[in-house]
Structure formats: C-alpha cells, structure tokens
Design a protein around this nucleic acid. Structure first.
Lengths: 339, 339
DNA sequence: TTGTAAGCGTTATCAC
DNA sequence: GTGATAACGCTTACAA
C-alpha cells in the first residue's frame, strides 16, 4: 500500500499541491521547469493518482456498468470482450453484474452500479423483465443508458442489437430451399422482443413461400428455471417430433444445442431424419455431431458498438435523437441442414 | 444523478451528519427513536451511500481485482462465475481485467487495478509470464494476492488450482486401459507450471505401465500467437500422426477441440483410427463428433474458493502460512475413447 | 445519546 | 506561473 500523494510530492519539491496537480494534468499555465521536475519525481516515486479522491471531486468515475444475464455463456462472453476492448480504448473501466435472468436481481444490479457511481450503464435485460421503470427513472435524471442485444421498445434509448426478424427469416428460408415443408419452431418463453421477432421472421418466410402456418409446429419453452429447463425442452421436442417435421428451427443458443442433444439421444439422424438449424454462437458448432448449421450474431461488434455509444453519451456528446442500430446475423450452413 | 447525501438528511431532520451516519450503520450508541427516523427518511428518499467518499475515508473499496487471460473462454467464464458468486455473498465487487496472454498487459492490469484501489488481487497469470516481480512487489507491501488456476512456485502466496499431474496421469492411464501403447502427447508451450505437470503425469503413467516414452510422440505447440495458432497445431498434429499413435492426449481446451477438428477434416475416424482424450471444460463435449472424452476441471469451485480466500485475506484474517489447495479433476469417458 | 470537527486525496476558485 | 483554500461525501475521535 502506502502510495505517495500529491502532498508528498509538493512537500518534497517545496511547491504547492495545486501546482503539482496542474503539472501532472499538463496544464498550460505551468512553467516547463516545474512541470518536468514534478513529472520526473512522480515517475521516480511511482506516483499513482487516487481514483477515489478524483471521482469524489469531479463526480465522474470513468467506469461504466454492464448488466448481462450470465457471464457463463459464450455469446455473452464474446459481447463482453467487445465491450472491454472499446472501454479500454477510451480509458474506461467496466463493472459487470449478472442478473441471472431474474428481474429482482436486475434491479439490484442497477442499484449497486448506481451506488458505485458508474457514469453510465449498458444493459441486456433479463428474460423476466417486462417492466422497465427502473431504467426509465435513471434516464429521467439524465443518466446515460444503452441497451444492447436484448432491446425493447418500452424504453427510449440508444440501442444496439441484431436484425432478429431477418435472421429468423433467412434461416427459415434456407430450410425451405432445402425442400422442407413442415418446419418446426422451437422458441423460448420470454418477455423479450427478440423472441417475438424471431417468431415473426419464421412466419413471414413461411407465408412468402406459400407454406401454411401450423400452430402445433410451434413451441415456446420456459428456459428460465434451471431445474426444469431440460424437462421442458424434452417435452417440447417430443411434442414437435410427433408431428414429424422435416426440419426444426431453434431460436436460442441453449435451445439449439439441447435440441441436437435430444435428437442424438433419441435416435433421430440429423439431417437424414430431420434438419436442424438454430441461433448459436458456439465456437464448436462445426465440430458437433453433425456439424451444426447456425444463425450467428456479431457478438463482439454488438458489445463494441454499444460501449462506444455509451461512452460518447457519458462524455456528454450530443448524439441527437435516440437511435437503434441493427446489425445483420450471418447464416452458416453446415451438415445439419445438408440434403 | 443528484443523489441525496448525509447532509441532506441531517438538515431535513435537524440532526447532525454524524448522527445520521451512525444511525445508518446501525451503531449501538444511537437512540431507537432517531434511528427509526433516519432509516425511514433514507428509505423514503432513496438514499444511496457514496462509495467513493466512503472508500476515500476508510481506505478500502470493498472491491477486488481479477486478472485472467481472456473472458472469451468458457473455462475462464466458469471460474469468473464462481468468483462473482463468492464476492456477491460477501458484498465485494470484482473488476475484471484481461491479460490476453501478454506479460506487458498483465503488468498494466495490475497497475490499473492497484490505482483503482482494489483491496486485493486474484490472478491467473498469462502464458508469457515467467517473471513475477510485479506481484512480489505488491506482496511485500502487504497487499493481498491469491493465485488461481495457473499457479507457480515462484511466488509465495495462497493458491488454488487442480491437481494437474493426477489429471494427466488418470487420463493417460485410461488410454492405456483401452489398450493403447503408443500415446501421443500434445501440449502447449508456456511458462506455466501446469504445462510441465501435465507432461509429467503423462510420463509417469507410461512408466508405471511399462510403456517406453518416445520423444517424437510429444509436441509442445505455441498457442499464444493468434495468427499462427492454427498452423502450429496442424503441423504438430501432422507430425504426431506420422508416428501412427493409438491415441492422442491433449492438455488444453484449445488443443483438444482443434485436434478433433484436424482429425475430422483429415479423414481420421475417432475412435476407430485413433482415440482422443483431452483437458476440456466445454459444455458441448458430449455433443461433439464423436462425443469427446475429457478431463474436466471444477472451474466454478476454483473461482469460488480462491475468491473466498482472498476475501478473508482482505478482511485481515490470519490464514496462517500460505497454502496451496489442489482440487481434483474428473474424467468423463465418452465415445472418443471407446473401443 | 448526540454534536463538532478534522481529514481521506483530489480539483477548482480565487488571489497574488 | 504559483499558492492558499474550500469542497466533494463520508467516517470517527473527541466533546458535550
């Protein structure tokens, strides 16, 4: 411990604290002589400015809060990597908090971050969240907030996400192009807009290709409860497979891999018996059995872009009216949709 | 912004700031009456204590720094999840910094964390790191440091990791029990002790089963340079396969999956042509082609335990002489080592 | 039981 | 150019 302070320097050099402070921040109104002297001494004695004191004084912490569902999720981790990179570039620090898909925890995270004095918050809301007043309240006080990945029209803010409708549309269309007529849709139950958007993309693709929509080829599966998630997915898969679909389109990373596991375990051959295609950012998709066709999201870019926007906001830049940036997903065709 | 402060409360209630402060920290020396009054007002006006001010005053931030190679790595993410959980339980916050396997960046991380006033640091050193003086210097000042996952005998501190020797030994023994005589060893080149420990475990298992050690069945592959990593692994795999091994034992997550990819791409059938077994914490291991046998590490537990120890240290508890805790890995047998 | 006042390390506002 | 001095919001002796 025992860091040296401005006062230590000022005493040692027999100049005032304020001069030292100004010299270190490279103020114009300081003589070159003293500036060099101070800088040299500071470096020699390994002076590290105390961020706490500075933050207390200027009211900014140069840190931003990031709320995500869980760090233990490769897609999220990729976004965090992008966020971290953007922040490092601008000298900002991030404080990461996990909501674990709980609305209550999400609120707690926001409060904690706020108490920590973060200059802004970027958040990817939990599955449970449908009431956004905790964010709106902050916003009304002029607190900078950016939504990423899981965005909502409930709140007026800068947002970054992917074009979920198009991603789902393209995926469905690909399955149709493979000759599939009966395409099952396995989605997760949530309050998120992306859930419904992916569903809409699926339906639109069917409609555009004169395929009739069958309600019993669609399941919305509860995936929030860690205890029951496996059972829920199994039930959904069983019910879908009873309808003998030609293909299954899954809308989340978890559903996609769990669906594959189910098919493998129950003796379905992919793609011979049924094609499988889903949203997933798993690095290992090409190595799965069979290599899995996926809708991939530009995770790192989402994080980077959102962080850049938030940092602009935090710095007081006027970005004009709030805007939503939608990045494109990319379709990766592999063996699971080969015919 | 515009949070209310202790002064605001004190003015509103016509009592002194210190009384308010004490009331909020539930000091014994405050009347029940005023305590209730203050608490009620604080809650009603949503008082949030300013951490910066508190930290500045007491010299502790209730935050700890975590240095890892990269957040974008499922094993690391799992450990972080464990760390976060332990910290949340004790009201501590974490600041995560990535070294990206660079020694220079690692030092920069440590400096930044220190400047941020974290109360302690837990670190999993980079592949490049062989000089630990940046950590020793902090330690000498009495700064709490815990090493996890990638530990070294170069530094005297509390450490948490897995028994790498045993993990590698068990893995090799399993391959031997499957009838393999020529077992290739694909390791990564690093300054880390775990690298050599896993190698030693492999050699010991061979020796204990009267199998002769062949140098040309062993490759240490440079995996730090992201540009060249694929080429390096391919070269190593090609060279190993020229020796027609019965099995390949890989010692890191990356090597394991890349090895599988190589085998699949080059027409080797696993396990018919060659068995594959490696260290990996990938959730998707059972879904790979073929389902991959793995040596799994208790990632979450490593994180949790290391965090708990650091928090004790930070709180000033005397944990006695520094100790190293080694958790056991677990062997998950799947199709890639089936005969 | 409550109040007063000093101080944590910075930065900002005045003077000189 | 440089130096006092106050202030950021909080905790904590020391008084009362």
């Amino acid at each position: 411990m025992s860091n040296i302070t401005l006062r230590d320097i000022s005493k040692a050099l027999n100049i005032s604290v304020s001069t030292v402070s100004r010299a270190l921040t490279d103020s114009h109104e300081i003589g070159e002589e003293t500036k060099k002297l101070v800088l040299a001494y500071a470096k020699a004695h390994n002076y590290i400015p105390n961020r706490m004191a500075r933050s207390l004084k200027v009211g900014k912490t140069k840190s931003i809060g990031v709320v995500i569902c869980s760090i233990d999720n490769s897609f999220v981790a990729q976004m965090l990597d992008g966020i971290d990179q953007a922040c490092k570039d601008h000298g900002y620090q991030i404080i990461i908090m996990q909501s674990k898909e709980s609305y209550e925890q999400e609120k707690a995270c926001i409060n904690l971050l706020y108490a920590n004095g973060v200059d802004g918050i970027m958040i990817s809301p939990s599955y449970q969240t449908s009431d956004f007043s905790h964010l709106k309240e902050l916003q009304e006080q002029g607190f900078p907030i950016v939504l990423f990945d899981r965005i909502t029209s409930e709140i007026d803010a800068h947002k970054v996400a992917v074009n979920n409708f198009k991603g789902a549309y393209d995926a469905t269309q690909h399955l149709i192009s493979r000759g599939c007529k009966k395409i099952a849709h396995l989605n997760s139950k949530s309050n998120l807009a992306l859930t419904i958007e992916r569903f809409e993309g699926y339906k639109q693709a069917l409609a555009d290709h004169q395929l009739t929509y069958h309600e019993d080829l669609v399941k919305f599966c509860n995936t929030t409860d860690a205890e029951k998630v496996d059972a829920n997915i199994e039930t959904a898969m069983r019910q879908l497979l009873e309808k003998q679909p030609h293909a299954i389109f899954t809308t989340t990373d978890l559903l996609t891999t769990k669906a594959l596991a189910y098919l493998n375990e129950h003796g379905y051959r992919v793609p011979e018996d049924v094609l499988l295609l889903g949203f997933s950012n798993a690095d290992l998709a090409p190595l799965l059995n069979p290599a899995l066709s996926t809708v991939q999201q530009p995770s790192k870019e989402i994080g980077q872009l959102a962080a850049q926007i938030l940092i602009q906001l935090v710095k007081g830049k006027d970005l004009g009216p709030t805007a939503t940036t939608l990045l494109d997903t990319s379709l990766h065709i592999r063996r699971s949709t080969q015919r």
